[in-house]
Design a protein around this nucleic acid. Structure first.
Lengths: 113, 113
DNA sequence: CTCGATACTTACGTTCAGGTAGGTACCTTA
DNA sequence: TAAGGTACCTACCTGAACGTAAGTATCGAG
């Protein structure tokens, strides 16, 4: 299969883990500090709760995200980046830089601030 | 439209340009040397002709790929990476490295408590 | 005058990521 | 009793991405 080829450049595994519409953004947001579920919802208002949970669960299964539950009166759950998650985010930086530099040249679907 | 997301981390534009199943692989293949259409077909046997042409055209429109036609007896078309394409491929390298290093860990995701 | 090789093009079908809308369970405050 | 906040879960639906298969045009070889 072509997978051999794809894996030869390592992008296959990487994309399988940060691919999709939201994961990179979520990882970026929890990279510096733990975030609560509702906090992430507010930070990414366009995401549905279903997608948010789904992406978080997948990233947790991949070892990128740590989930910590506090059994307190109003439920409290915090998501944070694991070392693996941080390393992935680091690997994403050059790509993000490239995107920033060439955003205009591309018909960027990126909302300006 | 989602504004701010102050962390508009440039990944949007980047992903819009190398996202999808095949583009990164194609870029990788034409990065070092020009490749003919049929050659790419052979190098990526799992891709359909339709997808190959489609991805190449989109990348050409984004300025990542240069297309050169030779009006010869059996038609000959060569695709090569533009400087922009090369710069994108460079930005992809750390991600590819990450993918290589953690390929196995991802293949077998473990849920730890 | 058909065959194979080139590089596409087109119509149609399927799959799946992502979106919508509602519900659950718990506790607190009033 | 009811409203409101937390963090989820579930079924259903849509649309774009992706795939399949066939057709087009040109030419030289046989």
């Amino acid at each position: 299969m072509a997978k051999k080829l794809a894996e030869s450049c390592g992008l296959g595994p990487a994309f399988s883990v940060i691919g999709g519409k939201w994961k990179a953004l979520i990882l970026w947001l929890i990279r510096t500090e733990p975030r609560r579920f509702g906090e992430l919802k507010r930070l990414v208002p366009d995401i549905s709760e279903k997608m948010l949970i789904q992406q978080l669960r997948e990233m947790e299964a991949h070892g990128l995200v740590h989930r910590e539950v506090f059994h307190v009166v109003p439920p409290r759950v915090e998501y944070s980046a694991t070392p693996l998650g941080v390393s992935l985010d680091d690997a994403l930086v050059p790509l993000a830089e490239w995107g920033k530099q060439h955003a205009e040249r591309i018909g960027a679907p990126q909302a300006a601030e």
